[in-house]
């Protein structure tokens, strides 16, 4: 179990979801993915991503100049 930090601030294209996907490939169930992003599209995108993949969104907050999402990995097939 590990906390994996993904700093995607400043990334617009291909975007923070791509950075999240890259980290998710290597993650294991129980890991926490903490993603920081500035792209405003990230909020709806990460919500859609969690819904589709069946992982758990434990936090989605807007800080002063970035968005932070924490995802608990639960849906990886082993």
């Amino acid at each position: 179990m590990a906390v994996i930090r993904v700093d995607a601030r400043g990334m617009a294209c291909p975007g923070p979801i791509s950075a999240l996907t890259k980290a998710y490939r290597k993650a294991k169930n129980g890991d926490i993915l903490e993603v920081l992003a500035t792209d405003p599209g990230f909020k709806p995108d990460v919500q859609a991503w969690v819904k589709r993949t069946g992982n758990e969104l434990t936090e989605l907050t807007e800080e002063k100049d970035y968005i932070k999402a924490s995802i608990k990995v639960t849906a990886k097939k082993t």
């Binding site: 291909p14 975007g15 979801i17 709806p44």
Partner: peptide, 10 residues
């Protein structure tokens, strides 16, 4: 595609 839409940019 890995993206939320049909192209990486909305």
């Amino acid at each position: 595609l890995p993206f939320p839409h049909a192209y990486s940019s909305k």
